[in-house]
Design a protein around this nucleic acid. Structure first.
Lengths: 217, 217
DNA sequence: TAGGAGGCACTACCATGCAACTATTCATCG
DNA sequence: CGATGAATAGTTGCATGGTAGTGCCTCCTA
């Protein structure tokens, strides 16, 4: 019998823990993520923490200023715009490549249903998770794992600055998701692509508008 | 006067050195990149080397097998196909977003000229660099820095397995580049996009075909 | 009061050492 | 002779400690 692998080391454990910690959204964006604090919190030494931080930096979730430490990444409005533009291009592309299957469609329908439920229950947390899940499922159906990974990372970046802007266009989003599923059910990928493009573009525009207003105050 | 920053630490130095080392192409793909070898070669300790390696792994240039060490990343044919599909989608998108300017067009024309020169001189090294440079310039003209960074990384991944396949469709590529520039000069972005799509698709197909033949032997 | 110099506390960065694990070699047995 | 197991060499993964860079605070001076 093959030996059981424990493909887990403290670095990857720390990576996930810190990532969860910063994506949770309760963190002020100016707090410094010191090695000592993180290592004590996780009960490990600084070495794996440092490695986890370098990985998080290369994923653009934190920024490390030499000799000064690690902070949550700050995004300019232009960077946020670029990010959404890219998401739009990639998700539209993914929809075009979708390998349709009954299982996929069923999964998407269920996702939309769950979104509706959480929306009615006003359960923000689960609603957002389901929204992310919808996009992730659709992307994964393209069969391109590299694309899926990149989009997951872009989504995580989005999380960093969307913490306080949940309320923008919620119910509309679910309806659009449902419309996308309908288009796919009818095998009309180009309509699904158009809907996806409009969907992300709309979220983008509302978010940018909101941020610009905030910035002026 | 502001204090002069030295935004450099051994980790980033090691990162660049190791990256250059593995992208250089002289490395056998089964050699193990041991921490001790790298740290001795660079004259530093293992700590910054380890951090550089974790960063390179998250950029998909190497793969670290737990408790076993770091190797050059190996790509399956499917992964290579996915990579090119993504490059195609992103570069076509970038061309669509290009902010045309006389300076850009002049730069691209010069790049094509240099490519022709290196091709005639049979200078592979410079020719490839110029090819990469052409695509990078065009991408950068989209104004989307995130996109530019992602494409640069994809390009680096391509370098890892294109070391021995330089000869496939070289002169053709330069002609296509020239055609793309002409389309942009005429302000016909959609033609430029179509050419770019065909260009990358063609390179992709030839490469995959070549690799499949190799695999059968 | 504003500006600068000096000191102090903090902590990132890196070096080093050790323990745990992997792979390999060699010996032993069926 | 092939297979199994133990010993061994080699390396990763992690902890720990020292050094030096950074920012803040205080005190001094103009």
């Amino acid at each position: 019998m093959k030996k059981i692998r424990i493909p887990e080391n403290l670095t990857s454990m720390a990576y996930r823990a810190i990532k969860d910690y910063i994506l949770d959204g309760r963190l002020d964006e100016n707090t410094r993520l010191t090695e000592e604090f993180l290592s004590q919190r996780l009960g490990i030494s600084k070495s794996p923490v440092r490695e986890a931080l370098t990985r998080l930096e290369s994923e653009r979730l934190i920024q490390i200023e030499p000799r000064r430490g690690a902070y949550l990444r700050k995004f300019s409005i232009k960077e946020i715009g670029d990010l959404y533009d890219l998401r739009e291009a990639l998700e539209v592309y993914a929809v075009g490549k979708t390998q349709l299957s009954p299982a996929l469609l069923a999964g998407l329908r269920e996702s939309v249903e769950r979104s509706r439920t959480h929306l009615e229950a006003n359960d923000k947390r689960r609603y957002i998770e389901e929204d992310v899940n919808f996009h992730a499922s659709l992307t994964a159906a393209s069969g391109n794992e590299l694309l899926t990974e990149i989009l997951r990372n872009l989504q995580h970046q989005v999380w960093l600055f969307r913490r306080k802007t949940y309320d923008l266009s919620r119910s509309k989003a679910t309806d659009t998701h449902a419309a996308i599923v309908r288009a796919l059910e009818e095998g009309d990928k180009s309509r699904a692509q158009r809907l996806m493009r409009e969907h992300i573009g709309e979220v983008r525009d509302k978010l940018i508008h909101y941020l610009e207003e905030q910035g002026e105050r």
